[in-house]
Design a protein around this nucleic acid. Structure first.
Lengths: 278, 278
DNA sequence: CATACTAATGACTACACGGTCAATTGTCAA
DNA sequence: TTGACAATTGACCGTGTAGTCATTAGTATG
């Protein structure tokens, strides 16, 4: 484990207990068993650590959900898989989820707020594509409301195990939320959230990634990796970004190679979107 | 206006923007146009100010909602009035609502956490009484789930105007949430949140259970069970309570044995806490 | 073993915080 | 106008913070 990873891991525990503000760098380094100076060899500042943590987990989370939604063939299982994976992920990374749910986002600096907003939008996009696939025309006017309800369920029910550390029957939870969602989708008539409203929310924060940005992210990823099949796959994919030459099937295979690697989930997500591969 | 009120008003604005931690007493007094010393004539400490703010608004909010729910004669309008009043109140006191939604509750001191938990319980009680009145027997097993959904709606939809300051059609919002709530109440079949689960949530805030109490609960559980692996496991765990002898790994295994048994979840939860096993 | 280099340390700085209190200002009855 | 008292101030204190950097420890190479 690199020092960076150690710091991130230990810092997360403290942040979850005390929040960002209330946790000092000294506490973090003590908890890691390293000196304060060593901390600043890995991170330029405390803020950079926070950004790194948020990126690390949000990328993984977004990528996981996206994969599940895109790879579930059976419509009947889609919603279930979505909820199950979501809560499983929350449960696995409960320290981070706790921070995410409760940290006062508006008090962050602009950069972090925008960042979180964008991740939130990614999640919303995934949810909307799922709604579209399952209910299509039937729920067109209601899709945003439905997405909001789904997010509301996620928020409220996750409190149960984040705040109170209760044992959770994930299967039952997922099934019960599927039922609720399905009921709403098939019977709702009143739409509150219009396209217009969504546009107003999105207005200031639009941002597509350019090819160059993606290449840059891939390169950074390659640097951080140890020699392995995954690294080789990523290098090949980077070449494919710059000079498309490979058969789609090969690209898909390469993406599959890196999908499970914990540090590649985000980059795999970006690449899947870029190459238009499910 | 008394000095106390002035301070509370001005402090609230800053807290909403920056959070409690990030707002200094100096900032507050500057914003009020008074000296730091004057602040401490009105409040013993910054914490006392925070408590005063939370009490002031939560009392008002709880009382408002309670009044509406208790004084609405017409069942058909009850839910609508509830949602309308709630969001109107959020809107009116949006600075406070913002704090409430986003402040990391777990990082507060014990007193504040308990306080908020109690207000939350009051609100839940009001919601549950409303559910009981409207749907009675029909939704008895589902009442907690329904209450959670209502809270989820409140949370998610309030973000729209708390975070993004959008103009809101309160009437349409309330009507659309009434529809959703009604749909769920009349058609849901799967209950996720049981009485047992609610008990577990309330538990950690009460006093710690003594060993004797836990033993008693375990014994009662054993009596009610049929002969099985689970029962044997529970008997062994009871002995372990009285005379610790087993390896932690064995204890964990025994706990795992009873975890899924429907009548053991509560006792498994207590035991996990007692033995300090995740 | 000597050298060159990197990794790691922790004492240190500058500063911001919550909270205090001697000194100052404002008020009003005598 | 005086004097007694209450209200208010802001310099000050101890503490804890983020971040720096001269120094030291560790390691690889010739």
């Amino acid at each position: 484990m690199t020092k960076k990873q150690l710091i991130m891991e230990k810092a997360l525990e403290l942040f979850a207990k005390q929040g960002f503000e209330a946790t000092s760098v000294q506490q973090i380094t003590d908890h890691c068993g390293i000196s304060k100076g060593a901390f600043y060899l890995s991170f330029k500042s405390k803020d950079e650590l926070i950004v790194a943590l948020i990126d690390h987990f949000m990328r993984q989370f977004t990528a996981d959900i996206d994969y599940v939604v895109n790879h579930e063939q059976n419509d009947a299982d889609l919603l279930y898989k979505f909820y199950y994976t979501t809560f499983q992920s929350f449960n696995k990374h409960s320290d981070f989820a706790k921070i995410l749910m409760k940290e006062p986002t508006q008090s962050f600096n602009e950069e972090l707020f925008t960042k979180l907003h964008n991740y939130n939008k990614s999640l919303e996009k995934i949810i909307l594509s799922m709604i579209d696939r399952l209910y299509g025309e039937q729920a067109n006017d209601l899709k945003y409301d439905l997405a909001f309800c789904i997010k509301g369920f996620m928020n409220t029910y996750s409190e149960l195990f984040l705040l109170y550390k209760l044992p959770i029957d994930l299967d039952l939870l997922a099934r019960s939320l599927v039922e609720k969602t399905d009921l709403l989708a098939k019977n709702m008539t009143l739409s509150f959230i219009s396209d217009e409203l969504i546009q107003m929310i999105d207005q200031p924060l639009n941002e597509e990634r350019t090819l160059a940005q993606i290449v840059e992210i891939v390169e950074k990823n390659i640097e951080d990796m140890e020699d392995s099949i995954e690294k080789e796959s990523l290098i090949l994919l980077k070449q494919e970004l710059l000079e498309p030459a490979l058969h789609p099937a090969i690209v898909k295979g390469l993406l599959e190679n890196i999908r499970q690697h914990p540090h590649c989930k985000w980059v795999a997500y970006l690449l899947r979107r870029h190459f238009g591969i499910k």
